[in-house]
Write a protein that binds this DNA or RNA. Structure first.
Lengths: 183, 183
DNA sequence: TTGCGTATGTGAAGAAATTCACAAAGCACG
DNA sequence: CGTGCTTTGTGAATTTCTTCACATACGCAA
């Protein structure tokens, strides 16, 4: 099974040349006159994205966002293991969560160290984000997926991705305001 | 109260020149030697983003993602009104949801037309996304916020934003794999 | 093995975005 | 009013990203 840069481009919103150039950054694994072998391409991309290894993930905040993540599932398949879940609420601490139990957020540092957590998902209120993140970083976590509407100031070497629903809606609002009917 | 481009840049990850150039696209509202008046700037930005008007939003999929949205709140304050919630599950239809009730997804087109919905939030399984989106578009919705892991092919004039948690994690994975320890 | 059709990989050209750098403009103070 | 200090707004320079275009390489068939 084989796929051309043309086809790859068709799926997303890119051009064939774009696809080829992007892939070429990581080496040249395509057969001229033929295209890219799908299994090989998939392997290469997994390697590039670092999905070959297992990533150990901690979820902080056992609220709805956390539930939504759990429901979605499919993380394990892609190499992301949620190894611990934390909350401040004594009501929630001790309750079952997937395969494990919700732990008190006080145990965060220890757990990160003990479990070798590299990535922390922050599903906590904006006020709490900074302190949690600092503690997670100090304990050795270097990746953060942040759902709170805050711009984080992070230490060197820490990578943050923000998911901000309000911003997404605002982007829609902007795009629609520019639309043909409006201007 | 006044703020300089320098300060604005400090908050996010941009430079002062960047901020000034971006703002200048939409006109020049800043006082030389002084900076930008915060209230005026806020007003202008609201205007640019189209947040002055009310946007009418429908949520399709009364699952955890929907709950997370509801919990988050603050939409009304920013001009986004969730005017209807839909689901296929007969269990869920008829249940209360915020101020309203969950409606059957069969009513989608009618409701969009009747309520003047412009934006649809898709929190449904990947398989269902296309059919729901097509119907929403046909009924007049022009903005889509999609949580399903699918690349949507959309008609002219429709704006889509994707929120894909797996991709965010993969981006973290990639960034961490490039990190100082690794290469 | 030679020739043909196809699709990659990549320099070079072109477009877009970012940064630089500075004139013009406002405020404060005497 | 004039001098000095500050910060905008914006052309020009620079960097980054995208597209073009074509030589190169592969498969296949005869």
């Amino acid at each position: 099974m084989v796929v051309s840069s043309q086809e790859l481009a068709g799926g997303g919103g890119a051009t064939a040349a774009q696809v080829r150039k992007d892939l070429s950054v990581f080496g040249s694994f395509g057969k001229r006159g033929l295209g890219y072998s799908v299994p090989e391409l998939a392997d290469r991309i997994r390697g590039i994205l670092g999905l070959e290894r297992e990533w150990r993930v901690a979820l902080v905040g056992a609220g709805r966002i956390g539930s939504a993540l759990l429901e979605h599932g499919g993380f394990g398949d892609r190499g992301f293991s949620i190894v611990a879940v934390f909350d401040v609420d004594p009501e929630k601490v001790g309750r079952p969560w997937g395969d494990s139990l919700v732990r008190d957020v006080d145990e965060l540092e220890d757990a990160i160290r003990d479990e070798g957590v590299q990535i922390v998902i922050l599903a906590v209120p904006a006020e709490a984000v900074h302190s949690v993140m600092d503690r997670a970083n100090r304990a050795g976590a270097r990746g953060v997926l942040n759902f709170a509407p805050t711009t984080l100031k992070v230490p060197e070497g820490v990578v943050v991705r923000d998911v901000n629903l309000m911003m997404e809606l605002e982007a829609l609002s902007f795009a629609l305001s520019q639309g043909p009917d409006e201007e």
